[in-house]
Design a protein around this nucleic acid. Structure first.
Lengths: 140, 140
DNA sequence: GAGGATATGTCAGAATATTGACATGAAGCA
DNA sequence: TGCTTCATGTCAATATTCTGACATATCCTC
């Protein structure tokens, strides 16, 4: 039953995010991507992919779209290894700001509905679940 | 931050589910579909789709696969309206049983990691989030 | 230095999902 | 009855994502 509730909450959240981001011509994945770059300027494609929980390949195509729209830039040549550092453009930063404000409203709605204690409790509960899932032995 | 934790937990869970279900040649979506039919025999395509949080169309193609594998049956003619009642075959029920046992292990790992109180708290916290998201006013 | 393990970017193909559209059946209402 | 509204199933086109594969670059070990 935890699994179902998790899925339900995630689906509801994503639905709301897509809804409000649509007005900025952004999808939830694109927003998550921009948000990650904002937090970690110079991150690599693979790094962002892991943070957004999609494959490198999916993030690659997603990034091309953002690049064509002039929201992000990608280094021409790798500074070290093969990773091509990615950064926000001015326009990317501006759009991220608008999007983040909208998303903040959604986060706030959840926070308000929970209250501080329950919110903390929810966060730690989810963390415990993640840890438990990661420690789960591989099915032989 | 709730959104991120939610996504992370959901991703970890789905990853584990896909992993263990792969041995039965099932995806998480297919399992969720079978599980829903098991709980609600005679459900319609649209009904199952809502329960699994995908579109009618996606569930339709998914069901065809299960049908071809002989795991589910679909009524030829609608009893009422246009809905074509869907049911598990014997083989479908058997496979669902095996799959459910595997999924139960994963659920148990999360439950054990939380303990009864925190588990209840997590469930109600998620429910509150869902309610808050549904009550959220449409972005004008 | 040589070789292996690991991480990254990318191409190709396939699976999966979504949106838009339309026809059909049921229910409610003037 | 006739009309509207709503839910359902389904077709088509598109978008998104994944897996598999390969080349390249770095690090580690011998």
């Amino acid at each position: 039953m935890i699994g179902y509730r998790l899925k339900q909450a995630q689906a509801a959240l994503r639905s709301r995010m897509d809804e409000t981001l649509k007005q900025l011509e952004l999808t939830t994945s694109q927003y998550s991507c921009l948000e990650t770059i904002g937090r970690r300027p110079g991150a690599s494609n693979a790094e962002i992919a892991r943070s957004v929980f999609v494959s490198r390949q999916a993030m690659n195509t997603l990034l091309r779209g953002l690049q064509q729209r002039g929201l992000v830039t990608r280094a021409e040549r790798a500074e070290a290894g093969r990773a091509l550092p990615i950064r926000l453009t001015g326009e990317g930063r501006r759009l991220l700001g608008e999007a983040a404000a909208r998303i903040a409203r959604i986060e706030k709605a959840m926070s308000d509905a929970l209250g501080p204690e329950r919110r903390t409790s929810l966060m730690s509960g989810l963390t415990r679940c993640v840890d438990a899932l990661e420690d789960l032995p591989d099915p032989e």
